[in-house]
């Protein structure tokens, strides 16, 4: 856990959204991260997971049942709130509006996927700029790489699961090849990392000076 004990941003920053993209191997990854978060975790989390268009989104109900934090499927025009993990509905793309409400779309698949990670990441980067954390976890294709690059360009913090530690390495590997992440973390480091980032924005006394 050495890489996360003191994270380091050069100025105080309150993160307003964590966007997670995940595909094959997602069930195990999400069941490791989400239940490890506190009930009142202050940053809304949005999970874009590749699932079958005909899925009944069992994963969402299962994650909700094993977690303290509330896990639910995105509804259109719903406002992002703290203490909640939102999952993309099967067969819909998810976008976020300037007023921090969700929009859904059935436009064509992107990277063979609907929901597509790129679609949400790009839209969230536009809205949240540097108050966004983008995360790519285990998966088999390259969806999310472009979106992650966009998040970094707009000033957000980007994190990729260590490909060697991922159930399926394709998606994290593609992301790292496209853009250099600020953090490469193992699965069990992610929840503590999120908690740290949430505190970072709140307790100014913890701030670390620049250029350490």
């Amino acid at each position: 856990m050495g890489t996360i004990t003191g994270a380091l941003l050069s100025k105080p920053r309150v993160f307003r959204c964590i966007a997670i993209g995940v595909s094959a191997g997602g069930m195990h990854a999400l069941s490791t991260i989400i239940p490890a978060l506190p009930k009142d975790f202050p940053i809304p989390i949005v999970v874009i997971q590749h699932i079958s268009p005909l899925s009944d989104n069992y994963t969402t109900r299962y994650l909700d049942s094993i977690s303290r934090i509330h896990v639910k499927e995105v509804d259109e025009k719903e406002r992002l709130r703290r203490g909640t993990v939102y999952t993309a509905p099967p067969n819909y793309h998810v976008l976020v509006e300037e007023d921090e409400t969700f929009s859904l779309s059935v436009e064509e698949r992107i990277n063979f996927a609907r929901p597509s990670v790129d679609v949400f990441f790009e839209s969230a980067a536009e809205v949240y700029g540097d108050s966004l954390i983008g995360v790519i976890l285990t998966g088999a294709n390259s969806d999310g790489s472009k979106g992650l690059k966009k998040i970094k360009e707009e000033g957000g913090v980007i994190v990729v699961q260590d490909p060697q530690n991922a159930e399926v390495e394709g998606m994290p590997k593609a992301a790292i090849e496209t853009v250099t992440p600020h953090f490469v973390l193992k699965l069990d480091e992610l929840a503590p990392f999120f908690v740290k980032m949430a505190k970072h924005g709140r307790k100014k006394t913890e701030l670390i000076p620049e250029n350490i």
Binding site: I4, A7, K11, D130, G155, V157, I208
Partner: peptide
């Protein structure tokens, strides 16, 4: 233990 991040100012 620190990782520096390059963030626009």
């Amino acid at each position: 233990e620190f990782v520096s991040i390059d963030i626009p100012d």
